[in-house]
Computed example of a mutant assay.
Amino acid sequence: MTGGSVESLLRDHLADPACAWSLGAYGAVAAFSRDPAEPTAFREDGGIGLATQRGAVALTVTPDLVPFAYETGFTGGWSQVVALCLPASACAMSRRTVLAELGPDAAAARAQDRDAILFDLGLGLRAVDACVRVADPGLIDRLRAAAGRPIFAPGNPVGPLLVAASPHRVFLARFGRIEVFTPIPPDGGASAPGPHTHILPKLLRLGRTHAATAPIPPGLVPCAALHPAHPAKDASGRRAGFNAARHAAFGRLLDAWGDPALTALRHTVLAGGEPDPALTNSRFARSAIRAARAQVLAMGI
């Protein structure tokens, strides 16, 4: 994996409103995106970050931050992502397993939020602290009274309380954060387009840092990701006409930050060739080939 500047990668994509972002683990994710015309405030201190009225993202380039670009193929299409990884030995966050008060959020993206109180939800994630940020005194008191217990413990009222109150959600990793200000949908409801969070207890119980379909190199843990605009889908995930410029742009990211063996399989398929069967005996290789073949179909070649 030999790319250019990690800082340039992050800044260039943060400046692109078509790029979405996520931070979290398998079963608990905060996502950030913005509309092209949405009022946006970039960080005044020159750091890598921005905020809208619906959410915020802030990142720091650390020496051990490793981007890893990959595609996964599935029936009818493909996905693309650049995972932002840390070495397994350097990714650990608090790993709290009970609700805990952390104090004022002095690092909040917006100055107006820095006196509000952070509470770690205690999800026990390896590389991410999933928190809520609360300014309402009554809600602060109720969360303080519930501190020290797992939020999913039988009879614990914290979950329904947070859904009803919809405080800010703040997900933290070693190199950054995503903040979500939008309402939490009720049970059975769908999140509105834009910044949102998902916390799925059934997936959390698996204890995974990422989906098994992601070809993350051994020794790395994905903590966040950037999601460049898809060549064949619109911002809502619906099929759209093929965008050759977007396709070429992600190809350059794969060349710079991807697995050379998987990228070589992609180039072979896109050039009309058939990969060597000896090189296709892993699930990740087969997925990369499916993705490339889906792209051939989308291009109409």
Rank of each mutant, 00 (worst) to 15 (best):
A88G: 08
G3L: 13
A100V: 07
G49C: 06
V170K: 02
L121V: 00
G188F: 11
P157S: 09
R239P: 06
M1D: 05
S282G: 06
A37G: 04
V82N: 02
T213M: 13
A69N: 03
Y26P: 03
A127L: 06
T2I: 12
F74T: 03
G103A: 11
A244Y: 00
R290E: 15
G76D: 07
G207D: 13
P217N: 13
F74G: 04
T197I: 15
P185S: 13
D255F: 01
A294H: 11
L172P: 00
R252K: 13
I178R: 00
Q112D: 14
L143S: 03
A192R: 12
N156E: 13
R174N: 09
D105I: 04
A211N: 14
A147Q: 09
A298N: 01
P104S: 14
A88D: 14
S22H: 07
A164I: 03
H210N: 14
P260Y: 13
H267E: 13
P231Y: 06
W21F: 15
P87G: 14
L123K: 03
R43I: 07
G77P: 02
V170C: 09
H210S: 15
G27D: 12
I178P: 01
F181T: 01
L99M: 04
C19H: 03
R290S: 10
G194D: 08
G251P: 05
A107H: 14
A127G: 12
A83H: 08
D120T: 01
C91H: 09
A190R: 12
L125V: 04
T209R: 10
W21P: 02
P218R: 14
D136R: 08
G103P: 09
L172W: 06
R54M: 00
A58H: 06
M299Y: 01
V81N: 07
F68L: 01
Q80G: 11
D45C: 00
A232V: 05
G159H: 09
F68S: 04
A51R: 05
T75G: 02
L84C: 08
S79L: 07
A235P: 01
P87I: 13
P87M: 14
V82T: 11
F32T: 01
H168I: 02
D129T: 01
L226C: 06
G122S: 07
E101H: 08
R205W: 08
A294C: 12
L270I: 11
A28K: 04
C91K: 04
L65R: 04
A31E: 08
G124R: 05
G55E: 05
V66E: 06
A264Y: 01
A106M: 06
